[in-house]
Amino acid sequence: MVYKIRDKETGKVYEVTIDEETNEITVYDVKTGKPVKTVNMTIEELKEAGYEVEPV
């Protein structure tokens, strides 16, 4: 599923895909559409880390 996340401190917005089964999150560069990095976190962990998470 695709989400937009926003860093509450910097205001930067990222587009991510989240595999609900493995909790693998792939972060994409919004301008190029290319993957930047992959992390292993849940949506709740993202929120605790200071991100706003919205489904696209």
Rank of each mutant, 00 (worst) to 15 (best):
L46E: 00
K4C: 13
K34W: 10
K34M: 12
D29A: 02
E20T: 14
I43P: 02
Y14M: 04
E20M: 12
G11T: 01
D29S: 06
E15I: 15
E21Q: 12
I5L: 06
I18Y: 15
P55F: 11
L46T: 00
E44Q: 11
T32W: 03
V13E: 14
A49I: 08
G33Y: 04
V36R: 03
E52Y: 07
E15V: 15
T10I: 02
I5F: 05
K47T: 08
E20H: 12
M1H: 11
M41P: 01
I25S: 01
E54N: 08
Y28H: 08
D19A: 04
E48D: 13
T42S: 11
K31F: 14
L46G: 00
I25F: 04
M41R: 05
M1L: 13
G11L: 03
P55N: 09
K34L: 13
V36E: 05
E45P: 00
E54R: 05
D29Y: 02
G50E: 02
E21T: 12
E52S: 07
N23H: 10
Y51K: 02
N23Y: 06
V30A: 11
K47Q: 11
E48N: 12
E15D: 13
P35Q: 07
K37E: 06
K34C: 15
T32E: 07
N40T: 13
Y28N: 04
L46P: 00
Y3L: 09
P35F: 13
V16N: 00
K34H: 10
I18D: 00
P55S: 12
E21G: 09
V53R: 02
N23R: 09
V13M: 08
E54H: 09
E24H: 10
P35V: 14
N23F: 07
E9I: 14
Y51M: 05
E9R: 14
K37D: 05
M1S: 10
K8R: 11
K37F: 15
V27F: 15
E15N: 15
V30R: 08
I25A: 05
E21V: 12
T22I: 07
I18V: 13
E21H: 10
I5C: 07
T17H: 13
Y14K: 00
N23C: 08
T42L: 02
M1I: 14
K8V: 08
T38I: 11
E52D: 09
K12T: 12
E24D: 07
E20P: 14
V13A: 06
E52P: 02
G50D: 03
Y51S: 01
D19S: 08
V39F: 15
E21C: 14
E15M: 15
I25T: 04
E48L: 12
E21F: 11
E24P: 02
K12Q: 13
V53S: 03
Y3Q: 04
T32P: 01
E44W: 08
V39E: 04
V2S: 10
E48P: 02
V2A: 11
N40K: 14
P55A: 13
K47C: 08
G50K: 04
N40Q: 12
K47W: 09
E20Y: 13
A49H: 11
E45I: 05
K8D: 02
V2I: 13
K12R: 12
E45W: 05
E20D: 10
A49P: 01
T10Y: 02
N40M: 12
V39I: 14
K34Y: 10
Y3H: 05
D7A: 03
Y28W: 14
P35K: 10
T17W: 14
V16C: 15
E45Q: 13
N23I: 04
K37W: 15
T10P: 00
E54G: 05
V53C: 07
G33I: 01
E24T: 15
V27K: 01
E44N: 11
I18P: 00
T26A: 03
T26K: 07
I43D: 01
E48W: 09
E54V: 11
V2N: 11
N23K: 10
L46V: 07
I25V: 08
T38W: 13
G33R: 07
E15H: 15
D7M: 02
I5P: 00
K12F: 11
E24Q: 13
K12E: 13
V36K: 04
E20N: 10
D29F: 02
V36Y: 07
V27M: 15
K47A: 11
Y28D: 00
E21R: 11
R6L: 09
K31L: 15
K12H: 11
K4L: 14
I5W: 03
V13T: 09
T10D: 04
E21D: 11
N23A: 07
M41K: 04
V39M: 14
E52R: 02
Y51E: 01
Y28V: 09
D29C: 07
Y51N: 03
L46S: 00
R6A: 05
G50Y: 05
Y14R: 00
V13G: 02
T32D: 07
R6Y: 12
E52H: 07
T38H: 09
K47M: 13
V2H: 15
T26I: 10
V2C: 12
M41C: 14
L46F: 09
V13W: 13
K8M: 09
T42A: 03
E24S: 14
V2K: 15
G33H: 09
T32M: 04
K31G: 13
I25C: 07
K8W: 06
T32I: 03
R6Q: 08
D7I: 02
D19F: 06
P35A: 09
T38S: 08
A49E: 08
K4P: 01
E21N: 12
E48G: 09
V2Y: 14
V36M: 10
N40A: 11
R6N: 04
V56I: 12
E44P: 06
T22C: 08
E21P: 03
E15W: 15
N40L: 12
E15T: 15
E52F: 07
V36A: 05
V30C: 15
V2R: 15
P55V: 12
E45D: 11
T10Q: 01
E15A: 11
V53P: 05
V27H: 04
I18K: 02
T42V: 01
G11P: 00
G33F: 04
Y28R: 09
M1N: 10
G11K: 03
P35R: 08
Y51I: 03
N23Q: 10
T42Y: 01
D29L: 02
E20F: 14
I43Q: 02
V16W: 04
Y3E: 01
P55I: 12
R6P: 00
V27I: 15
K34I: 09
Y3V: 06
K37I: 14
L46C: 06
E45A: 11
V30G: 10
V13L: 08
T10L: 02
K4Q: 12
V53E: 03
Y28F: 09
V16H: 00
I18R: 05
I43T: 02
T17F: 10
D19H: 09
G50T: 03
G11V: 00
T32G: 05
D7C: 12
V30D: 13
T42G: 06
D29H: 03
V30F: 11
V56G: 09
P55C: 12
A49K: 09
T17Y: 11
K37H: 13
V2M: 12
K34D: 08
Y14P: 00
E21S: 13
G11D: 04
K12L: 12
T10G: 02
V13S: 06
K47S: 09
E44Y: 07
T22V: 06
E48I: 10
Y3F: 11
V16M: 14
V39R: 02
T10C: 10
M1P: 15
K8G: 04
T32F: 02
E45H: 07
Y14D: 00
R6F: 09
E9D: 08
P55G: 10
Y14V: 02
T22R: 14
K31Y: 14
T17K: 10
Y51L: 03
T22L: 11
K37Y: 15
M41G: 13
E48Q: 14
E24Y: 10
T32V: 02
I25H: 01
V13Q: 06
K47H: 07
Y3S: 02
K47G: 08
E20Q: 10
V53Q: 03
V27P: 00
P55W: 10
K12P: 00
